[in-house]
């Protein structure tokens, strides 16, 4: 039994991503969408804490949102995988529930 969490806010604006990661359990997945994708950037002031908090959790970003914001996928954390909208759907169906961190 596992949960897909979605986060749509920049971690530089709100604590939502960290709160989400602090409530994840081993085997959960976190998908960063919309402004949430900024939480997946390597070399930021929050990169280390995101990596630490995400231990045991699979991190994803929505490719379309990354591209829209001009973020080169090479600048994302090594731990992060990209998915498109169909991949988003797969994550929803592969996990038992979806929790949107609004």
């Amino acid at each position: 039994m596992s949960t897909l969490h979605t986060v749509n806010k920049s971690p530089f604006e709100t604590q939502t991503l960290l709160s989400c990661l602090n409530h994840c359990r081993e085997g959960d997945a976190v998908l960063l969408i919309e402004d949430g994708i900024y939480g997946g950037i390597e070399g930021s002031a929050l990169s280390e804490i995101v990596k630490e908090s995400a231990a045991g959790v699979s991190l994803y970003v929505l490719n379309e949102d990354v591209k829209a914001r001009g973020i080169d996928p090479g600048r994302l954390l090594g731990e992060v995988s990209g998915v498109d909208y169909e991949g988003f759907v797969d994550l929803v169906t592969q996990h038992d529930r979806t929790q949107s961190w609004l």
Binding site: V92, T93, R97, T98, L102
Partner: peptide, 9 residues
Amino acid sequence: TDRLVMFGD
């Protein structure tokens, strides 16, 4: 439904 997904702020 089997899954519920919310989109918001």
